[in-house]
Lab assay of single mutants.
Amino acid sequence: VTLFVALYDYEARTEDDLSFHKGEKFQILNSSEGDWWEARSLTTGETGYIPSNYAAPV
Rank of each mutant, 00 (worst) to 15 (best):
G23N: 05
T2R: 14
G23D: 05
L42D: 03
S31Q: 14
S52R: 13
Y54R: 04
A55W: 05
Y8E: 07
E11Q: 12
F26P: 00
T44K: 03
S41Y: 03
L18S: 01
W37H: 03
E38P: 06
F26C: 05
D16L: 14
P51Q: 05
H21R: 15
E24M: 06
S32N: 11
Y8G: 05
F20L: 05
D17S: 14
D17H: 15
D9R: 04
W36G: 03
F4I: 06
P57G: 05
A56I: 13
K22S: 06
N30I: 07
K25A: 07
A39N: 00
I50D: 00
Q27D: 07
F26G: 01
W36C: 07
T44N: 06
V5Y: 12
F26I: 06
E24H: 07
T44D: 02
L42W: 07
W37D: 00
L7W: 04
N30G: 10
Y10F: 09
E38G: 04
G45F: 08
G45P: 01
I50A: 00
G34K: 12
E15L: 12
L7N: 03
A6Q: 00
V5P: 00
P51L: 07
V58E: 09
T47M: 09
F26W: 02
Q27A: 10
G48A: 03
D17T: 15
V5N: 02
N53Q: 11
E33Q: 14
I28H: 00
N53E: 09
W36T: 06
V1H: 13
N53M: 11
E46M: 14
E11K: 11
D16I: 13
E11D: 10
G34H: 11
T47G: 03
Y8K: 07
R13K: 12
L3W: 11
F4Y: 15
L7S: 03
L29C: 11
H21A: 12
K25V: 15
Y54Q: 04
E15T: 12
G48N: 01
A56T: 09
G34V: 11
P51F: 06
T43D: 10
T47A: 07
I50L: 04
E38Q: 13
W36Q: 06
G45K: 04
K22Y: 05
L29T: 06
Y8M: 09
L29Y: 07
S31Y: 13
L3F: 12
F20D: 00
S52W: 14
S19A: 06
V58I: 13
S32R: 11
D35W: 09
T14K: 13
T14V: 06
D17Y: 14
L3E: 08
F26S: 00
N30F: 08
Y8L: 08
V1M: 13
Y10T: 00
E33D: 15
S41G: 03
V5A: 05
F20T: 02
Y10H: 05
L18E: 00
P51S: 05
F26Q: 00
I28S: 01
E15V: 11
I50H: 00
P57I: 08
E24Y: 04
H21V: 14
K25P: 06
E33F: 12
V5C: 08
G48L: 03
T43R: 13
A6C: 04
A56V: 14
Q27F: 14
S31K: 14
K22W: 04
F20I: 05
T14G: 15
F4L: 07
A55Q: 04
G45D: 05
F4G: 03
R13A: 10
L3H: 09
T14Y: 15
Y54V: 05
E38Y: 15
D16A: 14
G23H: 04
G48K: 03
S41K: 14
G34S: 13
H21P: 06
D17L: 09
A55C: 15
P51D: 04
T47S: 09
G23F: 05
L18W: 05
S41C: 06
S41V: 07
S31M: 15
T2K: 12
N53K: 13
W36P: 04
V1Y: 14
T2Q: 13
E11V: 14
V1G: 13
V5H: 05
W36S: 06
K22P: 03
T47H: 08
W37T: 03
T43W: 11
I28N: 00
R40Y: 11
D17A: 15
A12P: 05
N30V: 08
A6P: 00
T47W: 10
Y49I: 08
D35R: 08
N30E: 07
G48P: 00
T47R: 11
D9P: 06
A39M: 05
I50Y: 02
K22T: 07
L29N: 05
K25I: 15
E15M: 11
E11R: 09
F26M: 06
Y8F: 12
T44W: 02
S52L: 06
W37Q: 03
D9M: 04
T2W: 13
I50W: 00
F20V: 04
N30L: 06
K22Q: 09
W37M: 08
A56L: 08
H21K: 15
Y10G: 00
T2G: 12
E46P: 01
